[in-house]
Amino acid sequence: MTTVFRDTWWLTRRRLAIFLNQPGYLVVTLIQPAVWLFLFGNLFRRVVELPGFGVDNYLDYLVPGVLVMNALASSIWAGMGMLEEIERGTMNRLLTLPISRTAIMSAGLGEHAVASIVQSGIILGMGALGGATYPGGIVGMVILVASAILLGTAVASLSNALGMVAGERETIIGVNSFLLLPTTFLSSVFMAKDLMPGWIATVARFNPLDWAAQMGRSALSASPDWGLIATRGALLVVIAALALMVSVRTFRTYQRQV
């Protein structure tokens, strides 16, 4: 087990070095969450005037949602990094080293977790500048970021698996464009549950993005609902673990086609 952690540590450093070596990508990664927040914050500013949000300031409602949505939107492209590793042959080199396959997968996730933490800081900071308040305090923020990381882990794992099996950018682009918008809008990220059409509220109950959004929002609110936080958190842990298992299994499929 310690070897898995050690391998993950070195491989995560390796992934981060590759990541930092692409300044353009880095800048986009840092700017994107700010754009989300600015756009949606302005676009929907007045929706809080509708009853059902339970907050006076829409930003208070929006920040946790945008934060987890951002985690989804960046981790869903993890498969592209995987594909690049495969195309460059660097994945093949890793696979012939005596390191744990789980570590190879977790390293990509570690990279996303680090990116997620940095982006979360930016979003929370921008939100505060815009006038959002976080009554849940530090504990709330930590829980919120944890929910984003869990969601990101699940999504990035599946994206990695897809990249490894599909072997083509087009497949990832197609699947992502198909999933990203519906997943976002069939959730409570922008709109309170009570204000949604009934069927959307029902669908949202099965949407992991919604679990993360609810968990984070509640944790950051003045009166966290610990039961809700615990159940959503548990659900996210389960799907993250399942997704990681699936992605490690796909190495076998890869072995057959390489």
């Binding site: 070095a17 590759i18 590793e85 460059r88 042959g89 660097t90 093949n92 080199r93 012939t96 005596p98």
Partner: peptide, 18 residues
Amino acid sequence: EVRRRIGVCSPGFRAEPV
């Protein structure tokens, strides 16, 4: 165990150019 004992150098197995 095999991986521990071997070294590989191949056009299909490259280190990242970073």
